[in-house]
Amino acid sequence: MDTGKNDISGWLVRRASWHLWAALGVVLGAAVLRTARVTSDGGMDNAIVVRAARTWLAGGSPYDDPHFLYLPSAVLAAAPQALLPVSVLRVLVPVAVSGCLLAGWACALRLYGVPLRSRCAVLGLLGSAACFAPFGHLLLLANWTATAALALPLALLLAGRGRWTAAGVVLGAAIALKPLLAPVALLFVFARRARALAALVLVPAVASAGAALLLPDPLGFVTRTLPFLLRGDDGFVRLYEASPAAVLPRLGVPQTVAEGIALLLCAAGVACAYLRWHGPGPDALRLAETAAGLMLSAFLVSRPSYDHYLLVVVPLLLAGVPYAGSVARTPWFWLALAPQLTGLSLPYLEPPQRRAFKDAFTLVTLAVTVARHNVRSRLLGAPATAVAGKVTMNGDPAF
């Protein structure tokens, strides 16, 4: 009788897992098809980079467009897209973006030792795709943040296995495409990995310098893009920025005071990340929570700073939920994400120009939550265990 019950239970579990994967396929497929249908070129942000590449191929400077905020190496990386028909890009780009997010989630799971075929794996991705608004925004915009969402967990996975130099190369390649992950260089400083840090710096430096020599305006990034980023004076872009330096002035706070608050929060976050790295706990948690603390600290002061930047950090933290000592087990983590639930309506914040206030709440709350958790982890330790290569919860197998 017991054997029969076990067989039935196993059959139900397998059936449930199959249905979850089928649901995930439907959600991702629908999101890709919707993006292909409503966009004419695969996504507005990707189109900016592709347009810059087309300008370069035509003999012009890609930095004539003030919204092209990438290093020169990104121009060469986008050149193959510039040669493709728009009808192909409409389908290829959303597929590539969703592929980056899927691969990044898989790397985050493997960092923690979570099986890729587990219910936790499929439920986490299904919940993100169906319920987390920045996921849909990133897919719709096709922003190159998707490359960072893949590169960061992949680099941490390599570092967790002792391959720090390879991790530096991966991060350097991602920075060459978009400089979003530059703050993670501090993790290599904390870990005293000089060779890996050199790889992280040299890869984008060499790639960008070589690409710049092929442009009609080799110093365009320095003379045009950097001043634009430092000033942050684009009135249209500012409406969608989530950093306190951009949001607080809209509430009447003087710009200088807002920037000072953002800098103080950033410095405190970096200090807490340093404490987390030198604290106890499994290597996976130390790597992920230190890197997340550094990235969130940077998002507090970076201009611009958008809601889809959260896709670099949130999946990395969410994948650690099987560990009893992870930040994803704290209620404040989920409270921070609540405003980003798809379909949740908040009074006065629904117009697109006001959603930055919701994004700022999520960013600041999540940054403070991770910083507080990093300090507590240093003081109290991380009570997670791993037995026979599988994550466990309170001594019982989680999967």
Rank of each mutant, 00 (worst) to 15 (best):
L139C: 01
Q255H: 07
V93P: 05
G43W: 04
A262K: 00
W164A: 10
V95S: 10
A382V: 07
G104N: 05
Y306R: 05
M1F: 10
R51E: 08
L152W: 08
F228I: 07
V27I: 13
A31N: 11
F190G: 07
F399C: 15
P183H: 11
L177V: 15
R354P: 12
V312F: 01
Y274H: 11
L89Y: 01
D7N: 12
L346K: 06
R14H: 04
V184A: 13
L171H: 12
A338Q: 02
A96N: 04
D2Q: 12
L154F: 09
M295G: 01
A133R: 01
P397T: 01
L33M: 12
A173M: 15
R303Q: 13
P304D: 11
K358I: 02
L140P: 13
P383D: 09
A23H: 05
D64M: 06
A146L: 07
A155S: 14
E289K: 01
R51T: 13
A398R: 08
D307G: 01
A191G: 07
A16V: 03
L318V: 00
L12S: 04
R355V: 04
A245I: 05
A176R: 04
G43Q: 08
A388D: 15
L141C: 07
G269T: 09
T256W: 14
L33A: 14
G343K: 06
V247E: 11
A129Q: 00
L310W: 00
L226P: 14
C107F: 11
G269P: 12
T290S: 08
A284G: 06
L344F: 04
V222M: 13
G60Y: 15
V203Y: 13
V312A: 08
D41E: 06
L285Q: 10
G42E: 02
